[in-house]
Design a protein around this nucleic acid. Structure first.
Lengths: 152, 152
DNA sequence: ACTTAAACTATAATGATTATAAATATAAAA
DNA sequence: TTTTATATTTATAATCATTATAGTTTAAGT
């Protein structure tokens, strides 16, 4: 944890940004709740527990900054809210989402599903791929096994 | 054009919805500007040119309905606006987007890039894929050729 | 024509996000 | 250390996209 914070601190400094207490508090929440796809509001509330004086706008600004620096991923499931995830240390961007249209659950999968596909896009369309977003919509295991009672 | 309208009319009737004049006007705009990734606001303004008495909320409701019936695709490039495209007649959902991070252009490509990938997801994660969204972010041909002056 | 439900317009309300102003902290220069 | 300049912050207002509501109109079925 402290190691990761330190890493991020250096990355910020390298681009002449500071790791202010507010920013650190935000990063800590993201670290604790890694992979939780938290919204800005969620993060704001969690940060507030530790540092009640922090403002929502600051959280937004921090998330925007971290997102520009590729420290967090800003993702969008089309539900009108942006969600933020801290990137795994040095991770390539090989994670994708399975959104269940029954129960609304979101599972994240790690797999370089698109390595070849990106090559095709670069070759056939002359488009230099820097990043991608891939989301599958369908029925999750629980829902088609009938082993869930969750409904949105 | 008229053929497609007729088709949509039947599809609506089949689910006991009517093709009201407002809905028809909306569909006509989408037909005329196919593949244009119009926002609800864009569509509203275009519809208004033909039928000035139509309301924004109606356009939203119509788009929502058409989207549920899979007549239009509701897409989201993460720019805070939903965009709507009429699906091509009987088309499978094999189109993907190339969003240029230089000039902001959006190109649409048609290709079953993910046929195999979907099979992998179903097999390895037990997730029944019904649909997917795939967007690549990168540098478009124009921008890395330096043949464009467009900047966002 | 009469009844009922669906669809409509206009507008208010909401929710997420961004912009602004004033205050505070931090770093750099003198 | 004081001064000055710059970043960052909080609090709050504003904005933008979208959704909900109230009252009205339209159309279908009887």
């Amino acid at each position: 944890m402290e190691h990761r914070i330190d890493q991020i601190k250096k990355q910020l400094h390298a681009q002449s940004y500071k790791l202010t207490p507010q920013r650190e508090a935000t990063v800590r929440v993201l670290l604790e709740r890694e992979e939780d796809h938290l919204s800005a509001e969620d993060i704001y509330l969690l940060v507030k527990e530790k540092a009640p004086e922090i403002g929502l706008a600051t959280v937004y600004r921090t998330l925007e900054l971290l997102s520009e620096l590729k420290i967090v991923d800003k993702i969008n499931f089309g539900d009108g809210v942006s969600r933020y995830d801290l990137r795994k240390e040095g991770a390539e961007h090989f994670h994708h989402h399975l959104v269940c249209i029954e129960c609304g659950s979101v599972e994240e999968i790690e797999n370089d599903l698109l390595g070849d596909v990106e090559k095709i896009v670069e070759r056939d369309w002359g488009f230099q791929v820097k990043d991608h977003r891939l989301t599958f919509h369908g029925i999750c295991r629980k829902c088609h096994d009938g082993t869930t009672t969750l409904k949105k």
